[in-house]
Write a protein that binds this DNA or RNA. Structure first.
Length: 569
RNA sequence: GAUCUCUUAGCUCAGCUGGUAGAGCAUAUCCCUUUUAAGGAUAGGGUCCUGGGUUCGAACCCCAGAGGGGUCACCA
């Protein structure tokens, strides 16, 4: 154990040893028969009820022979009243005087039996009759206190510590816990909505020989016995469509996808999306389904469709507005790009000050204009429809205009929340479009796709008309929990690996060469100034060496009148 | 990737123009039987992120590095 312990950690380890000496196992094996949780107990509070509870000891307020303490379980906190003579019926008062008062620390898990009552100040409490140690915490939690005005003192807020030690964050910040409970409810609600429609929840490969279905850089790994590269999926779309070919009417998957790109407030290398495909439908049907689903989720999770996102009030009440992409660009720039070729589009980009580069094709140019000039202004849920064909290689051409596709993106608070198509099911056209994408790859667009030959073969066997959608679960959770950072809605956001001090990388405490040299000059007793002069060290090094020698217990420095003296210990 | 910024006790944070580090909570010891973030008294607790440099002297100034956060670029 080379990790250096703080004073409090040492004290807690000593308390743990002391418990064992007294015959109390700090980590007992047997179950503890909990029958009551704090929130429920407070909601239907009746006095004189017998309860068995367990949780962390989160505060102790000792007043001689009686104490108040807070017990925190999965739902919240309950105040305990601990009276010496109620928990120690005989002459031996050690359980109270020693175990409770001294050996139990904040953060320890305890189990209690007791009876409910209300204190003089009106606080529902439990007067305990039994106290059991269930698990000792040898590291102190941050102490966060909330006063009666709800003001939080000494909040545990450092994002680095909160994300790296989410377990501490969850213990100490109830709002954080609430966010993840909501995230789970959102997914449950969505799952129920889709299952109730008769769609099948499926699981498709995360390790894929060809990373298809989106334009993004993949993570690559290697399978040893196949001796072949495998990619972490960037999307599951092509697998779900194979299942539609196989004869399912509706399939969906909550899928982790992995994209090897930049990280910021809204992008984590792994993220979750729900993708769904339904046969004999088109993207118009999908818009209706999506707005119904989101409205339902809001009602299930929040009880309202109105959500505050940052400065904005957003209402998820269906129906949502529908705007075509060309219409959106016209609305925000006054430019009509309908039917324009690449050369003219580049001129428009130049005129609008939209930054572009050589690798961009027609679709990408339009996307850039939209992203730069329009995207941010759609605060209320809005379907942007009819994307240019070039940037939607898996999407069916528009029934009225072959330049466009039957695609929509759902914009909320200026961000994309969902992306959906009438899926392209013409295998000949699909092959051609994927090949065009591959050509773009040659132009240097490193996000262009690999061609998945097996997917094309599947389409050749025939895929019914299908509409598909992908919804970003992390984003949806951000919207519905009022968080503006993806890290706040991921339990364990990706971070650079932490460097730990362990035995292998803590240098063995041995005197430095300078330290050894100084020791050689040291006589029985001499002035500190003389020793420094003899050492010929720079001031900084001298400072370090004296500190080192002192903490190693090699020398002692004291004041003799005005003079600083030093001697060997 | 560019740029700005932060890193001081277990936690939250002060720390002036460069002069050998402070507070509150937590912890330890003692007193206290219905308290409400903080009862009273006393005490201990520091690799000032790391490594160099400047200086008589560095938590503070300079350089390099690590980690975090913000903004921009790219992506969902």
């Amino acid at each position: 154990m080379a990790i250096q312990l703080s004073e409090q950690e040492i004290q807690r380890r000593q308390a743990l040893d002391e418990m064992r000496k007294r015959g109390i196992e700090p980590f007992p094996a047997a179950l503890f028969p909990v029958d009551t949780l704090s929130k429920q107990l407070k909601q239907d509070f009746i006095e004189r009820r017998q309860v068995v509870m367990a949780g962390r000891l989160m505060s102790k307020n000792i007043m001689g022979k009686a104490s108040f303490a807070d017990l925190q379980d999965s739902e919240g906190r309950m105040q305990l009243y601990v009276n010496r003579d109620e928990i120690c019926l005989g002459e031996d008062k050690a359980l109270y005087n020693v175990v409770f008062k001294k050996l139990l620390d904040l953060g320890d898990f305890i189990g209690i039996k007791g009876e409910t009552f209300v204190t003089g100040t009106g606080e529902p409490s439990v007067k305990i009759t039994e106290l059991h140690v269930l698990a000792k915490a040898v590291k102190p939690l941050p102490v966060v206190k909330t006063d009666k005005d709800g003001v939080i003192h000494d909040a545990f807020t450092d994002p680095e510590l909160r994300y790296r030690m989410r377990y501490v964050d969850l213990v100490v910040n109830p709002d954080v816990k609430e966010t993840f409970i909501k995230r789970s409810k959102i997914m449950t609600s969505m799952r129920n909505f889709l299952s109730n429609k008769g769609y099948l929840e499926v699981e498709t490969p995360i390790l894929q020989p060809i990373p298809g279905g989106a334009a993004a850089r993949p993570f690559i790994t290697h399978h040893n016995s196949l001796d072949t590269p495998l990619y972490l999926r960037i999307a599951n779309e092509l697998y779900l469509k194979r299942l539609i070919v196989g004869g399912f009417d509706g399939v969906f998957e909550f899928a982790k996808a992995f994209r090897n790109e930049g990280m910021d407030k809204t992008h984590n290398p792994e993220f979750t999306m729900m993708e769904m495909y339904v046969t004999y439908k088109d993207y118009k049907w999908m818009m209706e389904t999506t707005e119904q689903m989101l409205e339902t989720i809001c009602m299930d999770v929040l009880g309202t469709t109105k959500v505050t996102i940052g400065e904005n009030q957003v209402d998820f009440k269906a129906p949502f507005k529908r705007v075509t992409m060309i219409g959106a660009i016209k609305d925000h720039t006054g430019m009509d790009i309908d039917g324009m070729d690449e050369v003219h589009l580049r001129e428009v980009c130049a005129k609008l000050n939209v930054p572009i580069d050589e690798t961009m094709g027609k679709g990408k140019l339009i996307d850039e204009i939209f992203g730069e000039k329009c995207e941010g202004s759609y605060i209320q849920p809005t379907f942007i429809t009819d994307y240019p064909i070039e940037m939607s290689p898996l999407c069916k051409a528009h029934r009225d205009n072959p330049e466009l596709t039957e695609r929509f993106e759902l914009m909320v608070n200026g961000k994309e929340l969902a992306n959906a198509y009438s899926e392209l099911n013409d295998p000949i056209d699909q092959r051609k479009r994927l090949e065009e994408q591959a050509k773009l790859a040659d132009r240097g667009d490193d996000e262009a796709m690999f061609i998945d030959q097996d997917f094309l073969r599947a389409l050749e066997y025939g895929m019914p008309p299908t509409s598909g959608i992908g919804i970003g679960i992390d984003r949806l959770t951000m919207f519905l929990t009022g968080n503006d950072s993806i890290q706040e809605v991921l339990l364990f956001p990706q971070m650079r690996p932490e460097v730990f001090q362990t035995e292998s990388n803590v240098p063995i405490i041995e005197l430095s060469d300078e330290g050894k040299a100084v020791m050689k000059f040291l006589t029985e007793q001499m002035s500190l100034g003389d020793l420094k002069a003899k050492s010929e060290l720079s001031n900084k090094k001298w400072d370090r060496v004296t500190k080192e020698l002192r903490s190693a217990g090699k020398i002692e420095i004291w004041k003799d009148g005005e003079a600083l003296m030093v001697k060997e210990v």
